[in-house]
Amino acid sequence: MTFTTPPYLTQDVSVRRIMLHVLAALVPAIAVYVALIGPAVLVQLGIATLVALLGEAAMLKLRDKPLALFLGDGSAVVTAWLVALAFPPLAPWWLITVGTLFAIVIAKHLYGGLGQNPFNPAMIAFAVCIVAYPSLMSQWPPVDAGNGIGEQLALIFGQAPRLDAMSGATPLDALKTALKGADSGLTVASVLDNRAVFGHVGGKGWEWVSLAYLVGGLWMWQRKIIGGQVSAAFLAGMALIATALWLLHPDQFANPLFHLVSGGTMLGAFFIVTDPVSGCTTPRGKLIFGFAAGLLAYIIRVFGGYPDGVAFAVLLLNICAPLIDHSTQPAIFGMKK
C-alpha cells in the first residue's frame, strides 16, 4: 500500500488549464490585430512560440526537469505570445528571437523556472530590446500601410530595406512627438483631430485591439482565471492621474480615455499585471501593485523618453512586490482588528 495523504479529492484545475485560458483570451485581440496589420502578426507569434518552446526545452534539459510535464504546462507559449504582441509586428525575426530567448532563458529559467521569476518575462524582453534597439522597437506600421504578405515577410526576414516610411510611430509616440515640438504651438486637441493617425478615441485601429484585450480579460475574469482586482486597480491608477492632469491642463494632456485604450494599457491590465508569479498576492497588495503600476506607466509614457511606460512600470513594481506583500499580510481568522 502506498502512502497517501488527504485530501483525496481535488478540483479539476491545473497550470496547463490556466495557461490555455490565457491563450484563448488573447485570441480576439490577435484576430483584430491581424485584420488591421496583416499576417505579420501571426508570423511573429509563430517565431516566438517556436523559439520559446526550444529555449524552454533546452533549459529544462539542462536543469534536468521532466520535459513533457513542463513543456505541456503552456507557460512558455503564454510568454511567447505576450512577447510577440508587445513587439512591433514588422520587427525583424532576430529581434523577436532575442526577446523571447531573453524572456525564457534569463528572466524565467535562470531565476529558477516556472513560478520563480521575480520579473515578468515578457516585460523583461520588451525592456531589454527597447534599450538595446530603440529604433527597431519603435517602428510601428501604420494600420493602413497595406503591405501584402510577401512584403511583410520580406521585412521580417530582412530581405527588404527597412524604409523610414513604414516606421510610423504609435499614436502615443506621435502625440508625444507632436507636443514636444512645443514651438509648433499645437494643442492636444488639434493633434488628436488628425483622425488618420488617432482614429476615434485612442489611435486609429489600436482602440479596437485594446477593446479586444478588454473582452479577453473580462472573459478570464468571468471564468475566475484572474481575480480582477489588479486589473481594475491598474486601470484606476492610470485613469486617475490622466484625469487629474487632463482637468488641470487639457491643452497639454490627452483625455483619460485616450490613455486607457492606447499603447499597452489593456494588454498590461489583463495579461501583464495579472501575472501571479511576479505580482503581489495579498488582497491589499494586489490593489497597491495594480494602482502603482498604472500610475507609473502613465508617468513614464507621458514624461519619459520611451513610447510606452507599461513595461518599466511593471518591472519596477515587480521589484517592490515582496515588500508590498510582506507589509500587507491580511489578518487571519480570529485575529482581526
Binding site: G113, L114, T281, Q329, P330, G334
Partner: peptide, 22 residues
C-alpha cells in the same frame, strides 16, 4: 494525484483557506 508542479503563486489556496492563511 497529478504530478506536483512548482507553485505559481496564483493565490487560489489563500482564497480557499477558511482560516485566511497564506
Amino acid at each position: 494525484p497529478a504530478p506536483e508542479m512548482p507553485c505559481i503563486r496564483c493565490g487560489a489556496c489563500a482564497e480557499a483557506c477558511p482560516h485566511e492563511l497564506q
